[in-house]
């Protein structure tokens, strides 16, 4: 009888301490919920810096399209656009006309302009498939 009681006591002592484990588990859960952040999907566009001493010109000259980004407007081939939508329509038309041609976009950026203006432009270039070769330089 005494042996049986002893065996039972040992079995009881060997049980996993569930309540402590649950506490730790809930702490972990709370930590992960608190530190959870929204996953931001990012996109990118590649560009080339204009080299100070460019090499020899290529045999086949690509069509170079010149776009300047200012604080308040964009200037494309000498034509100013205040609104991004009108610039988008112009570039869509240009992309249709030059379909299949090798286009190099020369971007010239004004230092005072905000980054958002550049990203808006890059997004339109990507939409129209004109983002293959973009050179970037800054206006002094």
């Amino acid at each position: 009888m005494a042996k049986k009681r002893k065996k039972k006591r040992i079995e009881e002592e060997a049980e996993v301490p569930l309540s402590a484990m649950i506490d730790v588990t809930f702490l972990l859960l709370t930590y992960f919920i608190m530190t959870q952040t929204e996953v931001i999907e990012e996109a990118y566009i590649a560009m080339n810096m204009v080299a100070p001493n460019p090499g020899p010109p290529p045999e086949v000259k690509p069509t170079i399209f010149d776009i300047k980004v200012f604080e308040n407007d964009y200037v494309v081939q000498g034509r100013a656009f205040k609104e991004i939508d009108s610039l988008g329509a112009y570039l869509a038309n240009f992309a249709r006309e030059t379909q299949g041609a090798e286009i190099t976009i020369d971007l010239k950026l004004q230092g005072r302009a905000k980054t958002k203006r550049l990203v808006d432009l890059l997004d339109i270039l990507a939409k129209e498939g004109l983002e293959k070769k973009i050179n970037i330089a800054f206006l002094q």
Binding site: I45, M47, M49, K114, K116, L122, F138
Partner: peptide, 29 residues
Amino acid sequence: KEVELSVIEEVMSAVGECGVAKINISAKL
């Protein structure tokens, strides 16, 4: 998005000085 492009110019110059040619500009998709 509110950063002036002059700051980006500084960063790009520094990147160029380190000999890196592959530069991407990132945005939220």
